[in-house]
C-alpha cells in the first residue's frame, strides 16, 4: 500500500475506521491489529470500488466486514467467540479516549452483539436508516426497531454510570 493511497483515501476517513475498530476490540494491541487489517483490506479491495456508493460508505462496509470476520486466537480474548454472553470481568476497562463518558459508552457498545455494534455505530455517525440497511444488508424498517432496542440495552448498561 502506497503512502499516497493511505494519505488520500484512508486518512480522510480515519475517524470511521478508528471508531469501528475501537468498538470491536478490548485492548490497544487488538485495536492496532484490527486497524491495520482494515486499512490493508481497503487497499486490497480498492479496485472493486465502482462508485455505486460514496467512498466513506464503502470504507464503512470494508471496516465492518473486516471487524465482523476477525477472529483472534488470544487466550484472554473472549469477545469474538461469545460476545453476547461476555462475562463482565472479561471486559477490559477501556481508557482509549480522554472523555470518560465516551469510554463507558464504548465499553457498553462492546457488550452488544457484533451486528448490533455495527448498527449503533452507523446510527451514531448519523447515517440514515437506509444507508445503515444498505451497509448491513437488511431493510430500513428493521433498522429503526433494532436501534430502539439497542438504545434501551445501552441505557440499561450505562444506567448509573454516567451523569
Amino acid at each position: 500500500m502506497s503512502n499516497d493511497f493511505y494519505r488520500l483515501s484512508i486518512l480522510p476517513h480515519v475517524a470511521i475506521v478508528i471508531k469501528i475498530c475501537r468498538a470491536y476490540t478490548n485492548s490497544q494491541e487488538d485495536f492496532e491489529d484490527y486497524y491495520q487489517e482494515v486499512c490493508l483490506q481497503i487497499w486490497r479491495s480498492k479496485d472493486n470500488f465502482k462508485e455505486q456508493c460514496e467512498w466513506s460508505t464503502w470504507v464503512y462496509k470494508i471496516s465492518l466486514n473486516v471487524c465482523l470476520t476477525l477472529l483472534k486466537k488470544k487466550k484472554n480474548n473472549y469477545q469474538n467467540f461469545a460476545s453476547d454472553s461476555l462475562p463482565e470481568e472479561a471486559i477490559v476497562e477501556s481508557h482509549a479516549f480522554a472523555d470518560e463518558s465516551l469510554n463507558q459508552l464504548f465499553d457498553a457498545i462492546r457488550q452488544l452483539s457484533e451486528v448490533d455494534r455495527g448498527v449503533i455505530l452507523l446510527y451514531l455517525e448519523e447515517k440514515s436508516y437506509q444507508e445503515i440497511a444498505d451497509i448491513i444488508g437488511t431493510n430500513a424498517n428493521n433498522i429503526g426497531v433494532r436501534i430502539t432496542r439497542i438504545k434501551e440495552r445501552l441505557k440499561k448498561l450505562l444506567d448509573g454510570k454516567i451523569n
Binding site: 475517524a15 478508528i18 480522554a98 472523555d99 463518558s101 465516551l102 454516567i162
Partner: peptide, 22 residues
C-alpha cells in the same frame, strides 16, 4: 443516565486527540 448516547458520542469526539490513528 443524564446524557443521551448521542450527546456522549458528539461531545466525546469534539476532542480531536480522541481519534489518533495508530
Amino acid at each position: 443516565m443524564g446524557k443521551s448516547i448521542e450527546t456522549i458520542w458528539k461531545k466525546g469526539f469534539l476532542d480531536s486527540d480522541s481519534l489518533v490513528a495508530p
